[in-house]
Nucleic acid binder design. Structure first.
Length: 287
DNA sequence: AATTTACGCAACCGCTTCTTC
DNA sequence: TGAAGAAGCGGTTGCGTAAAT
């Protein structure tokens, strides 16, 4: 027995939303709030599927959306986060108040990808395209490849046992950062070390919901301060440490924490020529 | 001015994850 | 504990428009 479709396909409007439909949806949500998307269309008098309503609201009708061009800062945040977590658009969007996952995804595909390629950076691996041409055999033990990409963890081609493993790892990802360290193949000292940093929490707090009127400015500011953290990725040339480590430090009542992963050098390249020496992942919370 | 091509973005689809019973 | 439903997510598609010819 298959699963019933999320909505009747017949007699449903598809394609671009009309002004009237938008108005209906907005006025319904304003008076009833975001509730059950499945039943919303009927209740709001819309001939749309619930998913379609949800998408329309989240991506275009929400009043807290920021429209217009992305700033350079936003570019930087997107690139930095993408190098860490890959195509996790919703997580990235949560770091950019007023931006949606769909918007960021489109922006990535149409602008940033091209920008990176023009700078000789592979947008998938965030590494220099030329660097990939160096054969493994030429690497020495000292040329340890260090990576903080989660890409492999989300590889959809992985099946069965690996999938199960990935599921577990995904779970870990919710609360922690996986720092993957590969060493050169064919070398006796080869190690693939995965360092879990369970204290790094990607919980999304920085942007209170638009309708949450209980948050006064003070509370909001405090909330942001509490979640402010920095993820430092130093230039590998200056790094001597071979292992990544997590550390936290308290500063009075406000918890500013730093994750020193100085050995993870490959992402420390100069993003967009901005001399990025660290990734400022505001609101990555350390418990 | 007409046609073709490229691009950007809104929307859809299908799969995964979460929640409830 | 597992099944079913609901919500969320990310890849992909297709349309509208700007740019090029």
């Amino acid at each position: 027995m298959g699963r019933s479709p999320c909505c009747e396909k017949e007699h449903m409007n598809k394609g671009a939303w009309t002004k009237e439909e938008d108005e209906r949806l907005v006025s319904y949500i304003k008076s009833h709030g975001e509730g059950c998307w499945r039943s919303l269309p009927r209740a709001a008098g819309l001939l749309r599927c619930g998913k379609s309503c949800r998408l329309r609201w989240i991506n275009y009708l929400r009043p807290d959306l920021k429209r217009g061009n992305f700033t350079r800062d936003e570019d930087e945040v997107i690139i930095n986060l993408h190098s860490l977590i890959g195509n996790k658009w919703s997580l990235i969007a949560a770091r950019l108040p007023g931006r949606t996952d769909n918007e960021i995804k489109n922006y990535w595909n149409t602008h940033i990808k091209r920008k990176l390629l023009s700078k000789g950076i592979d947008p998938n691996t965030h590494r220099s395209i030329n660097a990939g041409k160096v054969s493994d055999s030429k690497k020495t033990e000292d040329q340890v490849v260090k990576d903080v990409s989660f890409g492999s963890l989300f590889d959809k081609t992985e099946k069965s046992e690996e999938q199960k493993q990935n599921k577990k790892q995904k779970q870990n990802l919710i609360n922690g950062l996986v720092c993957k360290e590969e060493r050169v193949e064919h070398h006796p000292a080869v190690v693939v070390q995965e360092i879990f940093c369970p204290n790094l929490n990607l919980e999304l707090r920085i942007s209170p919901p638009w309708h949450n009127k209980n948050h006064d400015d003070h509370t909001r500011e405090k909330s942001i301060n509490y979640t402010a953290s920095r993820l430092y990725v130093q230039n590998g040339m200056e790094s001597s440490s071979d292992t990544a480590k997590c550390q936290t430090e308290d500063s009075s009542s406000i918890s500013h924490s730093s994750l020193d992963i100085s050995s993870i050098s490959s992402v420390g390249y100069d993003f967009l020529g901005l001399n990025t020496r660290f990734m400022d992942l505001r609101s990555l919370e350390m418990n």
